[in-house]
Simulated assay, not measured.
Amino acid sequence: MSFIILALLIALSVYAIVLYNTLVKKRQMVEEGWSGIDVQLKRRANLIPNLVETVKGYAGHEQETLDAVTKLRASVGSVPAGDVAGRAKAEGALGQALGRLFAVAEAYPDLKASENFSDLHNSLDEIENAIQMARRYYNGAVRGLNVAVESFPSNLIANQFKFEKAEYFEIEDEAERAVPKVEF
């Protein structure tokens, strides 16, 4: 009888260790996913000054749009590292401003024909695609962690060792999802 109880305790201990390690792995995947998003957002932020300067050379009188992009880029950098919702909001606003910037560029055929502008635009498109892929990976990792944190019996281990649900990286404001409206 005591052998059965001992075997059961060992089996439960092994199972608890497996659950704990699974939770650790899922948390690390979330952190890796966030790091991937962060890298792509930094690449985009580093590209923006070159893009603004190129547009400024052709369309200097569109100062309001150029200033908005520059200010929003700076505000993105001021969001605390762990504030996923704040970062998503700031990045959404920056994305809208970049959309307006490209709409302004449409009005200047010389600018659109510029090889430098074209290269910057293509680089930004590549980065936006990489951000989208990184965001999908991150949100998938968040989903996996959140399911594990809330599901029985792993929630018992999660509660005991202070594992918490993570935030999705998403746009909450419907206006940020809309295509920017530009009027000249």
Rank of each mutant, 00 (worst) to 15 (best):
N116C: 11
Y168V: 03
D38V: 10
I4G: 10
G82S: 14
G33H: 02
A16K: 01
L98W: 01
V79S: 04
Y20R: 02
R100M: 12
N129E: 12
V182A: 15
V76F: 07
E126Q: 14
E106A: 13
R87Q: 10
G82E: 13
K162L: 12
E172T: 15
F152R: 04
E115C: 11
R87P: 02
E183R: 11
L101K: 01
V52N: 06
R100I: 11
M1Y: 13
V52Q: 03
L72C: 08
V55W: 01
V179K: 15
S118W: 07
E53M: 10
E32G: 13
A85I: 13
Y137E: 08
Y138F: 14
G86Y: 00
S78I: 11
G86Q: 06
T70L: 11
D173V: 06
Y20H: 09
M29A: 14
A93M: 15
D83E: 09
A141R: 00
Q160R: 15
L111C: 14
V30W: 03
K26G: 00
D125W: 07
R87Y: 04
D125L: 15
V52G: 04
K25N: 14
R177C: 10
G99T: 05
R43G: 10
E183D: 13
G86I: 02
E150V: 04
I37K: 01
E167H: 11
H61W: 15
Q132K: 00
E150G: 08
G77R: 04
L9M: 13
A130D: 08
N122F: 13
P153S: 02
A134C: 06
R143E: 14
R27W: 06
V147C: 03
G60P: 02
L19F: 00
W34C: 00
L124Q: 09
N155W: 01
L8C: 12
F117G: 01
Q63D: 06
A74V: 10
Y108P: 05
L72S: 03
M29W: 10
R143M: 12
A130S: 11
D38L: 09
I157C: 01
V142I: 02
K25T: 14
K25D: 12
A81K: 15
V24Q: 08
E128Q: 05
Y20D: 02
A130Q: 07
V84S: 07
L51H: 01
K89I: 03
S118F: 11
A103T: 12
A113H: 11
M133W: 08
G57Q: 07
Y58D: 02
K42S: 14
E106Q: 15
S13N: 08
L23T: 02
L72H: 07
F169W: 05
D119C: 10
G144R: 05
T54M: 10
Q132I: 03
V14D: 04
G99Q: 04
P180N: 09
Q96K: 12
F102V: 09
V14L: 11
S35G: 14
E167T: 09
I17R: 07
T65K: 02
A103G: 15
F3V: 14
G140L: 03
I5E: 13
L94I: 05
A113V: 10
P153W: 05
M29P: 00
E183W: 14
Y108N: 08
A90I: 03
R135I: 00
F163E: 01
N139G: 02
R136C: 02
E106F: 13
V24Y: 09
R100F: 07
V18D: 09
V30S: 01
K89E: 13
G99C: 06
A88I: 05
L47I: 07
M1P: 10
